[in-house]
Amino acid sequence: MEFNPPLQSGLLLRRYKRFLTDIQLDDGQELTIHCANTGAMTGCADPGTRVWYSTSSNPKRKLPQSWEIAQSPAGHYICVNTARANQIARELIEGGAIPTLSGYDTLRPEVKYGEENSRIDFLLQDAARADCYVEVKSVTLLDERTGAGMGYFPDAVTARGAKHLRELIAMKAAGHRAVLLFMVLHSGIARVAAAAHIDPHYSQLIEQARLAGVEILCYRPHLGVQRIEPEGFIPFESNSCDPTAADKSGIG
């Protein structure tokens, strides 16, 4: 995926009211841009962070600019626009970069399904095999207290995410293929685990899903400030340690 027109940059001043971000351009001008990420954005939204934003040509938008990429103090790139996760995932699937999800005749986005009034991100279908339900989640939380490159999902309690796990478990029980695809949009994350220290219920559900046969894939694309390209898979670690244990043991 290439950003067109090219992204422009500034320094983060503040993020507020969930959707609003004030930045300072290099010429000193201040600009309010849209933030599509409604999560905690831990480690992604500290004042002074270098941000890159896109500009829409849609005249109906109140805020034409959208925050796309952040650069952490350690130099890692983070795609903070959660709307990009599905776009990137679709390009990877259709381009064959995720072989285990390739080769289906059709890919349908946002299909209604399940008993809890959900929409699956992608439904993959063909006549030769079971339907494949793919739920995409964006991972941007890096917490290295339990080891270098340790990433977690979610970064805040997620009732919606729990609902999606229940739906995937039900689809698997009904004889379909069910996949939870973590799009790892932080260049510093090298492995992923459920954030039991943030949302214990979600952590328990993801373990139930794994044991029920729901496939858990973690894919980290190569992130740049002007394009995002295929890179490869990283591991998912089940039953990972709570990072607060590092505080108790004196590790830091």
Rank of each mutant, 00 (worst) to 15 (best):
P109F: 00
S240M: 13
P5H: 10
K163N: 10
G43D: 08
Q204I: 02
Q204F: 02
L205C: 08
V111P: 08
Q29G: 14
G114C: 08
C241H: 09
L180T: 00
R108T: 15
E94N: 02
Y113M: 07
E229T: 15
G114L: 07
T21S: 10
A190P: 00
Q87A: 12
T38V: 13
L63T: 09
S9E: 11
Q226N: 14
F3N: 11
L31Q: 13
L142C: 09
E30M: 14
L142Q: 04
S238F: 05
L12Y: 03
V192N: 07
L92C: 05
G149P: 11
D22Q: 10
R14F: 01
Q226T: 14
W52I: 03
T42I: 10
S118G: 14
L181F: 01
I98T: 10
P230I: 04
R145W: 04
Q8W: 00
R18G: 08
I198E: 13
E110K: 09
F19E: 08
E115S: 12
E215W: 00
Y152A: 03
T21N: 03
D242T: 08
L11G: 04
P64N: 07
E167L: 02
Y16I: 05
L13V: 15
S54Y: 04
T100W: 00
F233Y: 14
K112Y: 12
L7W: 11
E144D: 12
R177C: 14
R15V: 11
P109R: 05
I206H: 04
T146F: 00
A156V: 10
R227W: 00
V179F: 00
S238P: 14
R84S: 05
L20V: 08
Y202A: 06
T140A: 10
T55A: 06
Y16M: 06
A40F: 02
V134D: 06
N58Q: 04
V111G: 05
R90M: 06
R14M: 05
A74H: 04
T146V: 14
G232C: 13
A74Q: 13
L217K: 03
Q8T: 14
H197S: 11
T32I: 12
F3A: 09
T42C: 11
Q208P: 01
L211I: 09
T49E: 07
P154L: 03
